[in-house]
Simulated scan of single mutants.
Amino acid sequence: MKTALTHKTFASLLMALSFSTTTLATEGDKAIEVADVGFATPESVEYDAAGDIYLVTNINGGSLAVDGNGFISKLAPDGKVIELKWIDGANNGVTLNAPKGAAIVGDNLWVTDIDQVHVFALSDGQQKKSIKIEGSTFLNGITPGAGDYVYVTDSGLSEGMAPSGSDAIYKVWASGKYEVIVKDKGMGRPNGIWDDNGRLVVVTFGSGKMFAIDRSGRQIALPTPPHDGLDGLVKLADGRFLISSWGGSAIYALDKDDNFTTLADSLDAPADLGVDTKRQRVLIPLFKQNKVVILPF
């Protein structure tokens, strides 16, 4: 029987950790909080299973700022920073402004960035391609497809986080080709997305809804999470979906019977989630705190 981590449980886990600038735990089933290491608005954590490392995207400024200073960090599973700026938008030959969602397809790391999707080589971080999505304003969530492509969401936001009306979901190929899956300004600011065997599951930041898009393009309502401000979305091997919520400051789990439980709470602005499939952990960037929290599930 799996027990959800409630506020009390999560708080006790963090209290068990020391309060050094970087709080670490051993490779057991303990919470790990990585703080004061140089993260700058971390938005996503992606597990690279082949390299057994965590990759953290850092906006490092405004979410819509074309400032060339976004970066991606390499983090070890024990919480130690391997390389803070493994990929750095300030370097020549790199375009990276405000990186958000990240996904791994084969030997490539895909990253959303305002109105572009970047492709980097996992082996050395070299940038292979930048794909501009015309008409997009806030590319955000991303999930691998069943081939050499990804699906990405446009959360439809503009300066000042005002609605831009560009809410959409795109399918993007490594060749640079892309197509619109759905574009609807009433979608509710789509954010996290998951390719569930050809069915796309989406959570929204604005309306706090969860829905699916079937292969015919039909939208199907799914159970509504307890709170809104939905950001990250991943699916576990046991069939549960994990959803991060800014409104609830929590991670919710949706099981196969459509029941929600709270995996963890008291998390300030939990963003795009990752899953360490080797150690059974959920990887949580805290957008406003410049921290990454690693929790066993």
Rank of each mutant, 00 (worst) to 15 (best):
N91E: 15
N92R: 07
G93L: 12
G93R: 00
T95W: 06
T95L: 11
L96Y: 02
L96R: 02
N97H: 04
A98Q: 03
P99V: 10
K100E: 05
K100T: 06
G101N: 09
G101Y: 13
G101T: 13
A103V: 11
V105L: 06
G106S: 07
G106L: 06
G106I: 08
D107N: 10
D107L: 15
N108S: 13
L109M: 05
W110Q: 04
T112M: 02
I114R: 14
I114F: 14
Q116R: 14
Q116A: 15
V119E: 07
F120I: 12
F120T: 03
F120E: 10
A121C: 06
A121W: 11
S123P: 08
D124V: 03
G125Y: 06
G125H: 00
K128L: 12
K128C: 14
K128P: 14
K129E: 11
K129T: 07
K132Y: 06
I133Y: 09
E134Q: 15
G135I: 10
S136I: 13
F138C: 05
L139R: 09
N140G: 09
N140L: 05
G141Y: 01
G141R: 06
T143R: 02
T143K: 02
P144Y: 04
G145N: 07
G147H: 13
Y149I: 15
Y151G: 04
Y151D: 02
T153Q: 00
D154R: 06
S155V: 05
L157S: 12
L157N: 13
L157M: 14
L157F: 13
S158P: 13
E159R: 10
E159H: 14
E159K: 12
G160Q: 05
G160H: 07
G160P: 03
M161F: 09
A162H: 09
P163Q: 01
P163I: 13
P163A: 07
S164P: 12
S164E: 00
S166A: 12
S166M: 06
D167L: 09
D167R: 08
A168M: 13
A168L: 03
Y170H: 12
Y170W: 14
V172R: 00
W173E: 07
S175E: 10
S175N: 12
G176H: 01
K177W: 06
V180D: 13
V182K: 05
K183F: 10
D184T: 08
D184R: 12
K185Y: 08
G188P: 00
R189K: 13
N191S: 15
N191D: 11
G192F: 00
G192C: 04
D195T: 11
D195N: 02
G198Q: 11
R199F: 02
L200K: 08
V202S: 04
V203C: 14
F205D: 09
G208W: 02
G208R: 07
G208N: 09
K209L: 15
F211W: 03
F211S: 01
D214S: 06
R215S: 05
S216A: 06
S216N: 09
G217K: 08
R218F: 04
Q219G: 11
